[in-house]
Design a binder for these strands. Sequence first.
DNA 1: TCCAAAATAAGAATTATTCTCACCTTGCTC
DNA 2: GAGCAAGGTGAGAATAATTCTTATTTTGGA
Lengths: 151, 151
Amino acid sequence: MKRTVQESGGKRKAGLEELRRRLDERGGHMTRQRAAVYDYLSGVEHHPTAEEVFLNVKRRIPKISLATVYKNLEALVACEAISKLTYGDGSARYDIRTDHHYHTRCLGCGRMWDLEAARGKSALEQIKPQPGFAVSDFRLELLGHCEDCRG
Amino acid sequence: MKRTVQESGGKRKAGLEELRRRLDERGGHMTRQRAAVYDYLSGVEHHPTAEEVFLNVKRRIPKISLATVYKNLEALVACEAISKLTYGDGSARYDIRTDHHYHTRCLGCGRMWDLEAARGKSALEQIKPQPGFAVSDFRLELLGHCEDCRG
DNA sequence: TCCAAAATAAGAATTATTCTCACCTTGCTC
DNA sequence: GAGCAAGGTGAGAATAATTCTTATTTTGGA
């Protein structure tokens, strides 16, 4: 499992200590399973589905159940340690980053990547909604085909 | 059931004749059920779920089955007579418009509205993905609170 | 009218996700 | 470090949205 650290700009991923603090705030506990889920997400560069997280964490904790993975992902989202990506077809994906950014999604293989928010923010701010509507957030996805799927 | 016609700009909804032509092209047939599904979508201003379409079409064709509604929605999407909106949480929604446009979604009441593509297109085209990724489409949602939900 | 391809109804099956509940851990407090 | 209450876990059942299956019916052209 490759462990690459993301670089440059924005609030990125927090360490386990920070995670524990956040869990504490909401009366949550740190468990082996929870740490493993968080750790797996910290170590991958794409945005896996719950199933993928389950299969990978299972290698470390063979008896972990899928429901536990789901509940931990939910808990991590609740304490803002990770974020849930619900656009896209099929299943939700989870992202270690909680800073504001957008995604590219390959229509061939379904994989998703990060798109730097900086690249889109000013462009998006030019877009005005109907009168009376107060925009608080943007969701943006670029769809297309990745290098591997273009052949 | 209110039947309002959308106005101004872009390729909007096609009539039943146009629909028949499009179905023909792909070897599809026009059926009473298919026409009813299309007709229902043409007559509403929001973007209903398959369930909503089913319940409403059922009033005209009591014996229609939910699977038929799903298959018809799929067929209509395939011949580009309608489009499927899969962002958002929960179930997919269907939209009579197939021209390229975006949506605003109220976080208070969940309703969705159209956002003119013209307002976003040039802004979005400034956004560049990672090298090697060929963008074929954008999906954009503005999240916030509508006039009614701001009180 | 005849026919092959396509569509339908009904319900079973699948997929992603959440719930249930008996038992086990965590993180205090003493 | 033992005791305890709140929270977490695992296994499987339950649910929700969607798709598949199959026998029967419709459609649109020859």
